[in-house]
Design a protein around this nucleic acid. Structure first.
Lengths: 243, 243
DNA sequence: CCCCGGTTCCAACAAAAGTTAAGGACGCCT
DNA sequence: AGGCGTCCTTAACTTTTGTTGGAACCGGGG
């Protein structure tokens, strides 16, 4: 049954930021999930749509974004397996942004109704999910700082390290390299710069022997320089449930 | 009793985004709140601190911000009376940013413990507060877009209009003008530009007869041009509880 | 196998924003 | 009234980023 692996990924991730009781795990494991495959570069939910489900990433990468009147697009966050990128739609039914796949992905859908019922039955689970949406917001805050205050090379390094720290938790970092399946166009949209400038910045970091980004994969060349450039403090990820 | 006016402001605001039952209003009115006065430009909670209370703005303006290693500061949001800017601390106990006053302010503090108990008693109230934190996140998303994709003059106009729409709800817009008590330094920190450039942009909008910002007060000179420049779509404020 | 479309890469030029430096306005305190 | 400090204002100059246009690369489909 494919749903099982999905549920396991979710539970593993929730454990990182909250402490869960066994009965609650059972409840989550019993959640009805309908699975669906998506090709790369496809909209899952669109800005303005009314959502009735939340979507759990079983496999693949997703991104959230907003497009303004001038046609420019801003990527707001990247999402990896085990995450529920549109949990917010549970109470904000009309989407205020897009959710789309970056790579081919398999997604599990859980209806809002099911989740609401679970929350009434198990307030602790509700709090866990609430906390998850709060971490989501914390990541947005850091993203604002990144786009607003850091020079472009540091912005790129920071996004890379954030992604790496999250991938590490699900065992998806392979030595000095990990996946970041964005085109340079999309890197630009994430950093608030043009694709041309994204290319310049990527090249600069390569030439300085700090980090390489090639075909959707990041390879760190000099960890010390990389960390120093990124100015990364992972506290905002709130990965410790004890605090 | 000073607490009453505070509670009333909170309830009025919650009503905008959620439908509330009478019993729930009674519960909120019964919440123990300890009131405290703050001078302008003072930290309320600091990045890294452990919070045990949430803070309700009774009067005055506040802002949330983060400071990076290089010393640069990014303002993340502005807050007005009736709001609870650090509701997120309820489940993210260690602050990942600063909350400080912009003007002299009177703040009401509600302990996390009290709120948790209320949530267990009244899950609907918990959902209301949850929804509030989700709207907070929606505002962060729009802030990312603003800083990442809009040219500086549009950024300024957008922040102004967002603030105006929120002030309007609490009856704080006076014809074509409203309060925005930021120094030009702070305007720069909000928009992700330097104070010098903030000055340039403010002057430009004044010279073009669009909007005037003087001594912490915005006066709109040409509403049509102002709206057009800002590219504002208020959907992200999620002000309709019916949707 | 080659062609095609989307990336990646690059250079030259234009525009936006940052830096530095300095004078002016204004409120506040004595 | 005078002095002081903060904010605002402006100019000249530098750096970063955007724009335009084009060449090279690469993978998939005919």
């Amino acid at each position: 049954m494919p749903g099982d692996a999905i549920r396991a990924a979710l539970i593993r991730r929730l454990r990182i930021s909250s402490a869960i009781a066994d009965e609650d795990i059972k409840e989550i494991e019993a959640l009805p999930i309908s699975v669906r495959e998506y090709p790369a570069e496809t909209a899952v939910v669109r800005d303005g749509e009314r959502a009735t489900n939340c979507c759990l990433i079983a496999d693949g990468f997703c991104a959230r974004s907003k497009t303004i009147a001038s046609g420019k697009r801003q990527i707001l966050s990247l999402h990896i397996p085990g995450e529920i990128p549109d949990l917010m739609s549970l109470f904000l039914h009309v989407m205020d942004h897009d959710l789309s796949t970056l790579t081919a992905a398999t997604l599990g859908f859980i209806s809002h109704e099911t989740l609401q019922k679970l929350h009434r039955r198990r307030p602790v689970v509700a709090e866990m999910f609430w906390r998850d949406t709060l971490i989501d917001a914390a990541m947005f805050r850091e993203w604002i700082v990144n786009v607003g205050q850091r020079p472009a090379p540091a912005r790129l390094a920071h996004v890379m390290i954030e992604l790496r720290e999250r991938l590490r938790i699900i065992g998806r970092v392979d030595g000095t390299s990990f996946e970041m399946p964005l085109t340079q166009e999309q890197v630009g949209e994430a950093l608030g710069i043009t694709a041309v400038h994204a290319n310049r910045v990527i090249r600069q970091l390569r030439e300085e022997g700090i980090v390489e980004l090639h075909r959707g994969r990041v390879t760190v060349l000099d960890e010390r320089k990389f960390l120093e450039l990124a100015d990364f403090d992972g506290r905002y990820l709130h990965q410790s449930p004890t605090l």
